[in-house]
């Protein structure tokens, strides 16, 4: 045990909860939020490792992950809005056809 191991364990737990959320929720927005939770737990692990090794690079990764997450959310939510317009639903089980 060292000072950052609890953080890493917590990160793993949160990641798993996020995975289960992605797989069990049917609302596209909630699936999206679960993905954000997974990203966030990964960020936590990065920061913990950065602390352990006394290096800043881990924190830089978190910075970039946040930027990518922001971009992803913008496009993803736009997609959800577009799909909702045509399907009148955010339920991913309704989206089982390639044909719009």
């Amino acid at each position: 045990m060292n000072s950052v191991s609890p953080y890493v364990l917590l990160s793993a737990l949160l990641f798993t909860i996020g995975v289960v959320g992605v797989l069990t929720r049917r609302n596209a927005i909630l699936i999206f939020m679960s993905i954000e939770l997974m990203l966030n737990s990964a960020n936590l692990a990065f920061v913990a490792f950065a602390h352990q090794w006394g290096q800043l690079d881990g924190q830089m990764f978190v910075f970039f992950v946040m930027a990518v997450a922001a971009a992803e959310v913008a496009v993803g939510l736009a997609l959800i809005v577009t799909i909702f317009r045509s399907k009148k639903s955010t339920n991913v089980d309704d989206l089982s056809q390639l044909k719009g």
């Binding site: 995975v19 992605v22 797989l23 069990t24 049917r26 991913v92 089980d93 989206l95 089982s96 056809q97 390639l98």
Partner: peptide, 13 residues
Amino acid sequence: QNGLVRSYGMMML
């Protein structure tokens, strides 16, 4: 290949 996103996600997991 049922077209459901969540089952594909399950396969990935």
